[in-house]
Write a protein that binds this DNA or RNA. Sequence first.
DNA 1: GTTGTTGTGGAACGTTGTTCCATGCGTATT
DNA 2: AATACGCATGGAACAACGTTCCACAACAAC
Lengths: 230, 230
Amino acid sequence: MEKTRPSPRRDESLSRERIVDAAIALLDAGGADGLTFRALAERLATGAGAIYYHVANKSDLLTAACDSVIAHTLAECAVDGSPAAQIRDIALGLFDAIDAHAWVGSALAGAPGELPGVRILERIGRQVDALGVPHGGQWAAVCALVNYIMGVAGQNAANSQIARTHAYDRASLLDAMATRWSQLDAQQFSFTRSVADQLRDHDDRADYLTGLDLILQGMETLYAHPGQKD
Amino acid sequence: MEKTRPSPRRDESLSRERIVDAAIALLDAGGADGLTFRALAERLATGAGAIYYHVANKSDLLTAACDSVIAHTLAECAVDGSPAAQIRDIALGLFDAIDAHAWVGSALAGAPGELPGVRILERIGRQVDALGVPHGGQWAAVCALVNYIMGVAGQNAANSQIARTHAYDRASLLDAMATRWSQLDAQQFSFTRSVADQLRDHDDRADYLTGLDLILQGMETLYAHPGQKD
DNA sequence: GTTGTTGTGGAACGTTGTTCCATGCGTATT
DNA sequence: AATACGCATGGAACAACGTTCCACAACAAC
């Protein structure tokens, strides 16, 4: 039986929601390392112990913050259009959300099977079903899409983590990486050197979409389905 | 000018290689949290300060340990067969390596653009080129493959991290997750519930390969190339 | 033997997540 | 109205971590 909250002592009393909101603010401002129980306590004008009454531990808090962002992101994705178009819309929405809140990437990667990840699985799974993929192949197909998205998310998270700790911007980070790549051994790393230049001014978002389309195309080809096109 | 090492004081003196090997042993035994400068110092019968003379910091050490595993793994992959077959071989080799040393997954994800990641990029890039993908599409294609592999790696790392801290084995972990999924709201999470059962006894490796083939198939379809089949 | 450099070991510092507990406030009971 | 109870709070304390620092040992060169 749910007991109605016995009217908090103040209107500004502590609550899981207020804690999660403050955590998101700290994470957005300081990256994954910006979330600290001490900073959180200060921002909420309380002690560290009080927070633990509403939140199990840091991992729990991080997952809750992540879930808040994911839920809001998915709520704003289109619910019409062809299945493939919806998948692209969801994937792009997630990309932009993770780009804006890089910590979401690592939080998502660190909490497999938890609510935020499940939300993504659900939304993509429905569209894969609508796409006509046979039941036997749905699990593998959805996993492929989700794993790809998570992989990109992880890379983005790591990149902006590095950018933050080194106080670089994205451009100089990529430039430094491209320079390092082009100094590699010519024989041992011929391919890497050949793409080092493209690294400098490539479009993350566009490449992301291209990769997504590769998977979607593979699904369409392998699970040949009746007619419906993008 | 390279100065020849002035003959170390002992044969069992400290060296970067010995440190990295000890780090790998600790990581294999205790997961990503098992690597500690104190534990490392104890195992090497020295102090923490001495280690810092050979290694810049923990991140540097972790990347070096990761690179050692990746380099050895890639060295054992087949160098014959069709490009697609070689890509599968490389991807499977990486999967097994990360399965055996789960910490490699997170180390790889946390060091984008560093040597271990570049090794993977290079090996896959060459095969994508051999596959007949036009130069303009190679970067995106390779990124798609690598991102997918990294996504799976991250998930595996997170899963075995959880399994370790909760002292679960893989089976009970998946079982607990499946149970949690099947208790979700029937309307809001219909797809997730429909695949919850498949979660219990699915084959990670097989699903991984299926996803990989999805991408390879997409590449074959989109970048239609002359003849060569798997 | 003396000097100088290359490595070494361990103490110390600042920061973190987490635990613990004395205390305050609100509600219910008498 | 006074008391008692329990939810919720704030902050002190603890163990562990990465990292820095420095006194000093081992070897090489002279």
